[in-house]
């Protein structure tokens, strides 16, 4: 069972990352749940969502000790880095987070996702680069399922963005191997 926590600023696409994983998991016949944080939010405030992907019916959709945490900004790093389950995975957007985790009981992947996204020509795509890295390391879902999910999540007039999303996923996968 994968219990994933994704956190960042509102607008970085953390909610949609979680929905993509949930959609893709459902497409692959797995049990999934997606739970957003929905406190009184403000623009530029923090947002997070919890996703469970499992071979069995999902009990609690709450994730307090994630098997994977993907953090996109500083406040999220400080909040969730200590909660990752031993043996778990922490994916860090190193473009916006200067701190490096000193934990030795988890796998840490630092990725300069925002910079890589700028190089691809769209800073909004940083979330997909991180998602690509997550898929590469965990191997829980195929790119095909994610792209199929993306077609559902993006309105038809935005389907022109499918190509750059695909390239971002590939870049994310690649960067886990070369270490960017």
């Amino acid at each position: 069972m994968e219990e994933i926590l994704i956190a960042g600023f509102g607008g970085q696409g953390v909610m949609s990352m979680g929905q993509l994983i949930a959609y893709a998991g459902m497409k692959e016949g797995k049990y999934v749940s997606w739970l957003p944080s929905y406190g009184p939010e403000q623009r530029g405030g923090t947002a997070n969502c919890a996703v469970v992907v499992s071979g069995e019916q999902v009990g609690s959709p709450l994730v307090s000790q994630p098997t994977t945490a993907i953090v996109l900004n500083n406040p999220s790093y400080y909040k969730f880095e200590p909660t990752v389950r031993p043996g778990g995975l922490l994916i860090v957007n190193a473009s916006l987070i200067s701190k490096t985790s000193e934990r030795t009981d988890i796998k840490v992947m630092n990725l300069k996702a925002t910079e890589l996204a700028n190089e691809l020509g769209n800073p909004k795509i940083a979330n997909m680069i991180l998602l690509g890295a997550f898929l590469e390391i965990t191997g829980i879902l195929s790119d095909e399922s994610i792209l199929e999910a993306l077609k559902k999540v993006l309105s038809p007039e935005k389907h022109s963005l499918l190509e750059i999303n695909k390239r971002a996923l590939e870049l994310g996968r690649l960067s886990t191997k070369v270490g960017i």
């Binding site: 929905q19 949930a22 459902m26 049990y31 749940s33 997606w34 739970l35 929905y38 959709p61």
Partner: peptide
């Protein structure tokens, strides 16, 4: 409750 209302599930 709020959690059941806000969460997504197939």
């Amino acid at each position: 409750d709020g959690m059941l209302g806000q969460m997504m599930e197939p």
